[in-house]
């Protein structure tokens, strides 16, 4: 299997505060890795180092063989292949849904307006939002916004998608529609790293689940073993609280 991301001895500190402590793991093409763990454990920080929104304090991250922590690496070139979905959507409020989607393909990939708009329409169709084409983000519900955010990332044809609690800011009745889109992505063999509290999603979709606690991957396994009697006390107590 092909390694998409190799993470070696990754450390991140904010001042004196060590948030990530010597994390090493590989992410393979087609992996769906779910990260769970207590708040403040470093999940977001870990995810954000993968596309260098946070600069690692030490360690290496290889993306498709390129060390992205190397100062000579053109990070914009890497980032266009790494999609990211945020808890608070971060749609561009001054642009229409269509413009939100076509901006980066046109500026970064030099696609024509026509071809990027065609692609945007196709993707919007797939997530059932084609009628929102020319509206602004503030007219959408949270679930709709997050679906747009996901397809906005897909516009770049990324090799991997990072999700940071994509459903945590949503009203409960909207969680399902977003998870459905993510499930379909997984079915299409998209490589995904997902920080989530949706244990049902992790059970159903992930091939790996990791427990990120206190800055380390304290436990990792297949969802089956992860959720049924893992031999890790802190994980057991964490699971007993959230399940």
């Amino acid at each position: 299997m092909n390694k998409l991301l190799e993470i070696k001895d990754l450390c991140k500190s904010f001042g004196e505060h060590k948030v990530l402590k010597n994390i090493s793991t590989d992410i393979y093409v087609g992996d769906v890795l779910c990260l769970v763990g207590p708040s403040g454990g470093g999940k977001s920080t870990f995810l954000r180092t993968l596309n260098l929104l946070e600069l690692p304090t030490s360690g290496q991250i290889l993306f498709e063989g390129t060390d992205i922590t190397d100062k000579n690496t053109d990070i914009d070139n890497i980032r266009k292949k790494i999609g990211m979905v945020f808890q608070h959507f971060n749609l561009f409020p001054h642009l229409t849904i269509l413009e939100n989607m076509t901006l980066a393909p046109m500026k970064v990939l030099n696609q024509t307006k026509e071809s990027s708009e065609d692609k945007a329409k196709e993707l919007l169709n797939r997530v059932g939002l084609i009628d929102k084409l020319n509206t602004y983000p503030n007219m959408l519900s949270g679930g709709q916004k997050q679906r747009v955010a996901i397809v906005r990332s897909l516009m770049m044809n990324p090799d991997v998608m990072l999700f940071d609690e994509p459903t945590s800011a949503l009203d409960p009745e909207m969680v399902g529609e977003v998870l459905d889109v993510m499930k379909e992505l997984a079915r299409e063999k998209m490589t995904m790293v997902v920080v989530t509290h949706e244990m049902g999603f992790a059970k159903e979709v992930a091939n790996r689940v990791a427990f990120l606690d206190n800055g380390v991957f304290a436990y990792e396994n297949s969802p089956d073993k992860f959720f049924n009697n893992p031999n890790n006390e802190r994980l057991q107590s964490f699971l007993s609280k959230v399940l």
Binding site: N90, F92, L103, M156
Partner: peptide, 29 residues
Amino acid sequence: DNGQMEAGRSLGLSYLDTMKFIIIPQAFK
């Protein structure tokens, strides 16, 4: 909101392009 810069950068837009197309138009308003 800093999330705007992060969203722009994570789509592969350069710092200047993110400023130009995303941050400045909103700040101008």
